[in-house]
Amino acid sequence: MLALIVTVRATHVSAQNGWFKRFVQKTISDTTGEGKSSFRIYPTLGYAPETSLEIGLSSLLLFQAKGDTLNRLSEVAAFTFVTLEGQYGIWLDNAIYGDKDKWFFLGRTRFQRFPLLYYGIGHTTPDKEPALIDANYLLFRQRVLRRVMPNFFIGPEIDYQQLYNAEFRQPDDHFYDEPAGSDGTRNIGLGAALVYDNRHNVLNVRKGLFGELSFLKYNQSVGSHYNFQGFNLDVRSSHPLTRRNVLAWQIYGNFFTGNVPFNQMALMGGEMIMRGYYYGRYRDKNMLATQVEHRWLPFGFSKRFGGVVFAGAAVVGPKISSLVPARARLSGGVGLRYLLFRKKDIYLRLDVGFTGDGPGFYLFTGEAF
């Protein structure tokens, strides 16, 4: 999705419009001191073939427990959008650390009415017009983690996903077999997560390691429509090369067994990993992906602007043994960074990812990983 940020400047606002200048200062400028909470709102404007014009509003709450700068920076990010096609959605992400890291709440919530493009299942899906699954989608995933050793957390995890009011629309010139869950599905996963995290700033990691291994089991006995289970792996590491330069890498995997609905399979693409591919362009029960990124934060000739180059590879398959390099897809790209909150070292990112399917555009607050 191509997205452009719309910012407002109040340099020449008249005295009669002082309220507008104060609004801009509170939402765009970075005036809060260290340890103080910070809340910002900024509008976005976007376009995608499946949505037409999109208008959105993003907000970001940053704080440190008890206002102590020795505590990690917590963030709650929200994004809401509406399109000319009548689509809409609300996204909410949280990474909240308690005082002295005793607790860690990590999760995301999604509600949206948005088309899901379906190209089929497997690593060799056809290069033809996809089917369209129009539905309401609700996701709630939350981990409640307790520190048991320095930087090491453990705790329960819940994942609730529901697809309802679903309609599977076949393309005009060919047909897809309708996958499990295409007429709507509800699944509840219960499990646990092990997390190692020594990052201090989740949105812009200049040095640190994050590792997560989680297990979720979905069963009809707790209200799910399907019985399946899976492990999720996420390892991210960032290494400062100089004061401005960071080298980061990530290994990411999903490994499922059972009767997995199409929307909860391992999905390749999106704004986090394999940028440039539509989210779910390739899907199956298993996926292994990796990416590397070099960041200039900021450029040596600028106080606000920076950039990145990145590359990634991923493979999907029905079994772990089918995740072989010969079946991998590649992606790469470049990005522009703008220092949105100087005192908290938070950047706005605009990435362009290139793949065999063409380019993809992404605009978000904070780095992809």
Rank of each mutant, 00 (worst) to 15 (best):
V316H: 07
V24R: 03
L339Y: 06
L84I: 00
V148K: 01
F81D: 00
R283E: 03
Y176L: 06
G280Y: 08
I320F: 12
E293N: 10
I320T: 14
H225N: 15
I320A: 13
Y47V: 01
I121N: 08
E75G: 13
L60K: 06
G89H: 07
N151Y: 11
D351P: 05
L340T: 00
Q87G: 01
M265A: 01
G360W: 02
R283Q: 14
W249C: 08
F215K: 02
Y88R: 12
Y252E: 03
Y218H: 07
T83Y: 10
L213C: 10
I41C: 13
S52G: 04
Q162D: 12
R275V: 02
V76E: 00
A166L: 04
L241V: 15
R342F: 05
K217A: 13
W103R: 12
K66I: 06
F23K: 02
L323P: 05
R147D: 00
Q170R: 01
L241M: 13
P240D: 07
T7D: 11
R243S: 15
G335S: 12
N136P: 00
Q291R: 03
R275C: 08
A180C: 00
G86I: 05
F354P: 07
G312W: 10
S52E: 15
R304L: 15
L323Y: 08
R186Y: 10
Y176K: 01
N254D: 12
Q64H: 07
V13Y: 15
V315L: 10
G333C: 04
L117H: 02
G120M: 07
F81L: 02
N245S: 13
P150A: 12
V292A: 13
G280F: 08
S52R: 15
E167Y: 05
S38T: 15
I154R: 00
R199K: 09
H200K: 11
L339S: 08
H239K: 12
G208D: 05
F23S: 09
L288T: 05
P359Q: 02
K128S: 13
Y347D: 11
D101L: 14
M149Q: 08
K319G: 12
A311H: 04
K285Y: 02
R304V: 12
A78V: 15
T355E: 08
N263I: 14
P325Y: 04
S322E: 04
Q291H: 12
V334R: 00
Q112Y: 07
A77M: 10
T44S: 15
K207F: 12
L330F: 14
P130R: 06
G208F: 06
S321A: 09
Q220F: 10
W103L: 13
G230W: 02
Y164V: 02
D30L: 03
S214G: 06
Y277M: 09
R206K: 14
I121E: 11
H174V: 09
R186I: 11
L330K: 12
F255Q: 01
R342D: 11
S331F: 03
A166I: 10
T125N: 15
D284R: 07
G67P: 04
N254C: 00
P298C: 06
L247Y: 11
V309H: 06
F152T: 08
R236F: 14
L4S: 09
G86H: 01
L117A: 10
G33Y: 04
G98F: 13
T51R: 08
F341Y: 00
G189K: 05
V24C: 03
N187H: 03
L57T: 01
R304H: 15
Y118S: 05
L339C: 06
A48G: 15
L203T: 01
T44D: 15
L336T: 03
